[in-house]
């Protein structure tokens, strides 16, 4: 009896410390984001003296107004939205289509096609040969460089194939009896029943497209074609403030925004869409990680 009592006590202590530890991890995760948020909502000139930790000292929306008034930032935002949308649809559709063909039994050459794909998982040409290829394909300074080179992934194809193979054959046979060919079976039978896996891959690729700055950095010189992440990269990492100065001067004559405060507001605007869709999509990416881990 006595022994049991002591054990519960130490168990309770363990639970307490564990809970406090987890709360601490949550705090450490959220606070850096919160810090940026309160500073972005603070008057720019006032923020320069620092010390804004929990709440804006001089609340202001001018930083965000400056962001939305800046044609450079808005163009970049538009490019990001366009490349994320078009790129994700193209990637999911094209990869799923090839995966469907390769998942059919008795496909002539199927084994060879899969071998061709498997090699790509282990060896890649690397940065320079890829760069030269994009140049030869006239994809430099071309919006399509965000789409075509990312339309297909053999890794995602494996995930699709695993899913497609589980679809009961009866569905397909029924459509075939109704006179459907392989193409219309893919479009009208396979795609509609594969929504969970399509959504998972779309989510992962969408986040990649939204966050990718490297493509815009090496293949795009024309600033009208750069996505918001590349724009931010040029501002954050290279401290090339010329773009920011333009945004500051463009902001309707007020003197209270600084390049730093606009930078923070741009970061918030860039990240907000992801944070908003994130809770709704959580179940998909957890599921996706599982499919990926079973496979990989």
């Amino acid at each position: 009896m006595f022994k049991l009592q002591r054990k519960t006590k130490s168990e309770a202590l363990f639970d307490l410390i564990n809970t406090i530890g987890m709360l601490l991890i949550c705090f450490v995760t959220l606070y850096p984001i919160w810090y940026v948020l309160v500073n972005a909502f603070n008057d720019g000139t006032d923020a320069m003296s620092g010390g804004i930790y929990w709440w804006p000292r001089v609340f202001s929306l001018e930083n965000f107004e400056a962001v939305f008034d800046s044609p450079g930032i808005m163009t970049a935002m538009g490019i990001t939205v366009a490349k994320t949308f078009i790129g994700t649809v193209a990637h999911v559709f094209f990869t799923a289509m090839v995966a469907y063909a390769l998942s059919r039994k008795g496909l002539i050459g199927g084994k060879i096609y899969i071998l061709i794909g498997t090699v790509t998982l282990f060896f890649a040409g690397g940065l320079i040969p890829s760069f030269l290829l994009m140049k030869d394909l006239h994809l430099l300074d071309n919006f399509l460089v965000y789409i075509i080179p990312f339309m297909f992934s053999f890794f995602d194809l494996i995930i699709f194939m695993t899913f497609f193979r589980e679809i009961p054959e009866g569905l397909e046979e029924a459509a075939r009896i109704d006179g459907a060919n392989d193409w219309s079976i893919f479009m009208r039978v396979i795609l509609p029943v594969s929504m969970p896996v399509l959504a998972t891959i779309a989510l992962f690729h969408g986040v990649f497209q939204w966050n990718d700055y490297f493509t815009g950095m090496i293949y795009i010189n024309n600033t009208d074609l750069q996505p918001i992440q590349t724009y931010l990269y040029r501002v954050v990492a290279q401290s090339s403030s010329s773009q920011m100065v333009a945004a500051v001067q463009g902001s309707s004559g007020t003197k209270t925004v600084t390049s730093q405060s606009i930078k923070l507001a741009t970061m918030v605007v860039t990240t907000l869409p992801i944070v908003f869709v994130y809770p709704f999509l959580q179940k998909y990416f957890v599921k996706g990680m599982m499919i990926g881990s079973i496979k990989g």
Partner: peptide, 11 residues
């Protein structure tokens, strides 16, 4: 995980 490295670099 869903923040880009550019934004994290800014932070």
């Amino acid at each position: 995980h869903f923040l880009s490295w550019v934004v994290l670099g800014g932070i």
